[in-house]
């Protein structure tokens, strides 16, 4: 519980190693007034909505009331508001409080103990790898080392769902594209039924007509892929450095904010154009077959 001279509210108090925390979290970036923790014992950081609720400004006194870890005795400690942060999601800004680790250990009677150590990997993929030896080395009877996906299964589930949703949307897009190709090829054939009729009348075989339509589809696919790859590369390259603004949201206590940065990969420039080309050719088979079966005498009526 945290109290000012005017009001009181419940809170979730984190004691953090101010210097090390800079390497694993973004608290310092969220400070909008005052300053990040410097190691002074009575420093305290609260969110903007909490500051408004408690009607406090920088330098004002705040009292934290908590139960000690071992004995559950009620203890109180005085702090001076040194910084106000704003992560974005109201739940976080209304409830979180940060103080220095030493002070937290002293207030809560933890005597130099910790209950959570965050490790940041150079390769983010390592953090998802439950088989990483580090997790086993750090796990014993008293401690448990887990990757973030195990610690935050709801985010893992959300990402998995996002993966399925992307696959479904991708499939729908591919189906729509193939319908578009079939439509374009049919329009192109209907506009040229007369030409196909003449071509057949003077000796073009049905198989040659099929080859012609498939060749046109191949050209359509190649030109589309070239255009798509160029536009995709330029946009991907731009957003890989500038990012796509995504706003701020909180999922299971984790802040997802800032920009979403695209990542260009070779397979995207090889596999997807190959899928599109194959899809276009497959979609053109029916129109090609239709064109090959055009009856010259009926097609030539269009000239009259």
């Amino acid at each position: 519980m945290i109290a000012s001279s005017y009001n009181t509210t419940g809170s979730l108090v984190y004691g953090v190693d101010a210097k090390q925390e800079l390497r694993v979290s973004r608290i310092s970036e969220a400070i909008i007034e005052g300053q990040y923790l410097s190691g002074e014992p009575r420093e305290i950081l609260i969110g903007k909505p909490m500051a408004e609720l408690l009607e406090v400004e920088l330098g004002d006194r705040l009292i934290i009331t908590a139960a000690t870890v071992d004995t559950n005795e009620i203890t109180q400690e005085l702090f001076r508001l040194s910084g106000i942060f704003e992560f974005g999601p109201e739940e976080m800004d209304k409830n979180l409080v940060f103080i220095n680790l030493d002070k937290a250990q002293s207030v809560l009677g933890m005597k130099g103990n910790l209950h959570q150590i965050a490790v940041r990997f150079i390769d983010p993929e390592d953090a998802k790898n439950a088989e990483l030896p580090l997790f086993k080395q750090l796990t014993n009877e008293e401690n448990e080392a887990l990757g973030w996906l195990d610690l935050q299964p709801s985010i893992g589930a959300m990402l998995e769902m996002t993966g399925y949703a992307t696959a479904i949307v991708g499939t729908i897009l591919f189906l729509l594209t193939s319908l578009g190709v079939i439509n374009s090829m049919f329009m192109s054939i209907y506009e040229r039924i007369y030409e196909f009729g003449v071509a057949k009348a003077i000796g073009t075989t049905p198989w040659q007509i099929i080859q012609l339509v498939l060749f046109e589809a191949l050209l359509l696919a190649l030109i589309s892929c070239a255009a798509g790859l160029t536009i995709g590369y330029l946009l991907g390259d731009y957003f890989s450095t500038n990012g796509i603004p995504m706003g701020k949201m909180e999922v299971s206590g984790v802040l997802l904010d800032g920009n979403l940065y695209t990542k260009l990969a070779l397979y995207q420039f090889v596999n997807f154009p190959a899928y599109v080309t194959l899809l276009t050719l497959a979609a053109a088979i029916y129109p090609a077959s239709f064109a090959s079966r055009i009856v010259p005498t009926e097609a030539l009526q269009r000239a009259l």
């Binding site: 030409e195 071509a199 009348a201 000796g203 075989t205 049905p206 198989w207 040659q208 000239a303």
Partner: peptide, 25 residues
């Protein structure tokens, strides 16, 4: 077959149509 007939037309028959039926493109 369709292909044989087209080949036959190509090699043995020439058509001149009343409406010319040239390929416009």
């Amino acid at each position: 077959s369709g292909n044989q007939l087209s080949d036959f037309r190509r090699d043995h028959i020439g058509f001149i149509f009343q409406a010319y039926n040239l390929i416009p493109v």
